[in-house]
């Protein structure tokens, strides 16, 4: 780990002031990913600005939505009674991630900004365009079971590892930012980028910008929602494929509205817009679900080790929607 200086910020403006103009400064949340990457010398900040003292409240909004302070821990968010009642897919997504210990440490802001777990990204001896632009990508023809089947580029096939973000993408969450040029907001679905030819630039954050809060709009039908994560062991593993879904069916058994997002398949949490469009107005049955899944995965391409994820994603989508159809929750 490279040496650094440490500062603890009392509020967002103090944090921004501390980091301003320093490209090698990093905001430190729970540290569960950043500290690991620093130890591997993949991240080499010269300054850490501790932002765990920033607001961590989880407050219902008058419109029925929710405002979540970026320093709220993953556990706090998953255990929040409003989240459990109104956004169960979010609670389940968070709880499917990592371990209880890590969820107790990790913050909402940090979870959003965690970096890929591609082993070639972690190994300084490997070629990685994300770690070292222009170096090449050892994952593309290497061990790529956990890699992207959607939206990948010749430069990078890494995936975003967050479970929570998949639910946030499905919920149309807004991310509130603050930075040297002032506060602004961005849809979570637009915060993370596809790799293109610059996989090292992972988000739309500008230099020095900080996530201060995440806002969930009201979504009454999200009470009928869930998250399913498929992985290589029964717990404590990253997703091969995950599906966050909320389903609204009318009395005639027709899909009135649906939210669907995928994890483990792309460089960003993948909002399944094509599948959603294909489902709306269709009968809520296995045939429609399969057609929607096919529509979403039509553009998917497999690599040596991960081609199975295309079919796995389709099946998991169908299963999750089927589960929500049968469930009276």
């Amino acid at each position: 780990m490279n040496p650094f200086t440490y500062e603890r910020a009392s509020d967002a403006s103090a944090a921004i002031e501390l980091a301003k103009g320093n490209a090698a400064a990093r905001y430190l949340g729970g540290g569960t990913n950043l500290v690991d990457l620093m130890r591997e010398t993949v991240e080499r900040p010269d300054m850490l600005v501790d932002v765990t003292g920033l607001p961590r409240g989880i407050e219902p909004r008058a419109d029925g939505g929710l405002l979540i302070g970026a320093a709220a821990t993953n556990t706090a968010l998953a255990a929040d009674s409003h989240v459990r009642r109104h956004y169960p897919l979010l609670a389940r997504a968070i709880l499917a991630g990592a371990s209880a210990q890590i969820r107790n440490m990790a913050t909402v802001g940090g979870n959003i900004l965690q970096r890929t777990r591609c082993r070639y990204f972690y190994d300084n001896a490997a070629a990685c365009n994300k770690r070292q632009p222009g170096a090449g990508c050892d994952a593309r023809d290497g061990f790529n079971r956990y890699h992207a089947i959607l939206g990948a580029s010749p430069a990078c096939v890494a995936t975003h590892p967050s479970d929570m973000c998949v639910a946030l993408a499905a919920l149309d969450a807004t991310v509130h930012l603050d930075g040297p040029t002032g506060p602004r907001s961005i849809a979570l679905a637009e915060l993370h980028r596809l790799p293109g030819d610059r996989p090292d630039i992972e988000t739309e954050l500008k230099p020095g910008e900080l996530i201060t809060a995440v806002e969930l709009p009201p979504l009454p039908f999200a009470r009928r929602s869930t998250y399913r994560k498929v992985r290589d062991r029964a717990s404590y593993a990253f997703a091969l494929v995950s599906v966050a879904a909320a389903l609204d069916i009318d009395d005639g058994g027709v899909v009135r509205n649906v939210r669907l997002a995928l994890g483990g398949v792309a460089h960003k949490p993948w909002r399944a817009s094509a599948a959603e469009a294909a489902l709306k107005g269709r009968p809520a049955n296995a045939e429609s679900f399969r057609a929607a899944a096919e529509a979403e995965l039509a553009a998917a391409t497999g690599l040596r080790d991960n081609a199975f994820k295309i079919e796995l994603a389709k099946r998991t989508i169908v299963a999750v929607l089927g589960e929500l159809t049968g469930d009276d929750a």
């Binding site: 440490y6 603890r8 430190l28 729970g30 540290g31 569960t32 500290v35 690991d36 850490l48 501790d50 765990t52 371990s99 210990q101 890590i102 107790n104 440490m105």
Partner: peptide, 10 residues
């Protein structure tokens, strides 16, 4: 918590 991922200073 996992003390290995916790910077003591924090």
């Amino acid at each position: 918590i996992n003390s290995c991922l916790a910077l003591a200073v924090q």
